[in-house]
Amino acid sequence: MFALLFLFIAVVAAYPARGPCTGDCWTKDPAVIQRSSDGTYFRFGTGTGVVTMTSPSLKGPWKDVGAALPSGSKINVEGVDSHDIWAPDVHKEGDTYYMYYVLSKLGTQTSQIGVATSTTLEPGSWTDHGEIGLPANSAYNRIDPNWIEIGGKQYLQFGSYWQDIYQVELANALQVGSAAPYQLSWNASLNHRQEGSFMYKNGDYYYLFFSAGLAGSYTANSPPAGEEYSVRVCRSATGTGHFVDKAGNDCKQSGGTMVLASHDQVYGPGGEGVINDKDLGPVLVYHYYPLSLKQSGGSKGNDGYQFGWNELDFASGWPVVKAT
């Protein structure tokens, strides 16, 4: 019993405190980017029309400034409100910002990935271009998009459950190319509970971050301890395959090194991304569920999720969260 208690304390103490957040810290699946013209931070998240927050720093104060797509998406997904938009991913090319997003019927493969563009990031400034043309397939779910450029070519990571994380080459930032999607990561031991992938280049490697475990409206009784969301990673020299974890395990054979798990008040961290902060360097951004809220019975929907962030240290060749 004492050994188990010691192990629990050691695990809880293994992570530093998250970075501070003031103002409106509610979020789900945060995508954070800094506007190049004035340094303003924008935080986009799952919600009606894509929830948009702004702040002068990562610490806040964050302010809700409205929906990125107040009229919803032009995509028609049966049984889904076009305003109910998930998992935004935002990057900049030239003078244009691109936002990939999702419409999906929960728990099904009835999903579509769309894209919108803006030159300012401001709510209502986005032009919706609709579907990117990713074909349906029983092997994957078309959700949780993430863009990256590798060797002058553009790619999109995506997927959740079924056969987990996939990658597809894009013809351009608005459309999928002719190449077939292929699998990057898979874990049968997690009941295929992998999603929210985000690829980040550091040094000689591409790091594939993903959320493993159960996400949802956490309550005092669910899920079983250790089965909630956590952030894990594999790396590759090419970015297009052969991802392994720190122990050398293939990411397509249940590999994945833990980056961040539940600790202190941070319960079920996930929905992650990595940004290069102008002052702090690489920073992991994510959502989490306050443990005190879970212990009190939880809340309905996504109301309880909060914005979390930690600096990342890659000195060992693997990302390690550190205190700010």
Rank of each mutant, 00 (worst) to 15 (best):
Q109A: 11
Q109E: 10
Q109C: 02
T110D: 14
T110M: 09
S111E: 07
S111F: 06
S111L: 12
S111I: 11
Q112T: 13
Q112R: 15
Q112K: 14
Q112W: 06
Q112V: 14
Q112H: 08
Q112L: 12
Q112A: 15
I113G: 05
G114A: 12
G114K: 11
G114Q: 12
G114C: 15
V115H: 12
V115L: 09
A116W: 03
A116I: 10
T117Q: 11
T117G: 07
T117M: 09
S118R: 02
S118W: 05
T119W: 04
T119S: 13
T119L: 00
T119F: 01
T120L: 01
T120C: 09
L121M: 14
L121D: 03
L121V: 01
L121F: 10
L121N: 01
L121W: 01
E122N: 06
E122I: 00
P123E: 05
P123N: 06
G124R: 03
G124A: 09
S125K: 06
S125C: 04
S125A: 11
W126D: 01
W126S: 08
W126M: 10
T127L: 05
T127D: 05
T127N: 14
T127Y: 05
D128V: 09
D128L: 12
D128I: 09
D128C: 12
H129G: 06
H129S: 10
H129Y: 12
G130T: 12
G130E: 12
G130D: 09
G130W: 07
E131H: 03
E131I: 09
E131R: 13
E131M: 06
I132S: 04
L134Y: 12
L134E: 11
L134K: 07
P135H: 14
A136D: 15
A136I: 00
A136L: 11
A136E: 13
A136R: 09
N137H: 14
S138V: 12
S138P: 08
S138M: 08
S138E: 10
A139G: 03
A139T: 03
A139P: 00
A139C: 01
A139S: 10
Y140N: 02
Y140C: 00
N141G: 08
N141F: 01
N141L: 03
N141E: 09
N141V: 06
R142F: 00
R142P: 03
R142N: 10
R142K: 15
D144A: 06
D144L: 04
P145K: 02
P145D: 00
N146G: 08
W147Y: 15
W147K: 02
W147V: 01
W147H: 13
I148E: 07
I148K: 04
I148D: 02
I148C: 09
E149M: 08
E149R: 15
E149T: 15
I150Y: 02
I150M: 10
I150V: 15
G151N: 12
G151S: 03
G151M: 05
G151V: 07
G151D: 01
G151Q: 08
G152M: 04
G152I: 05
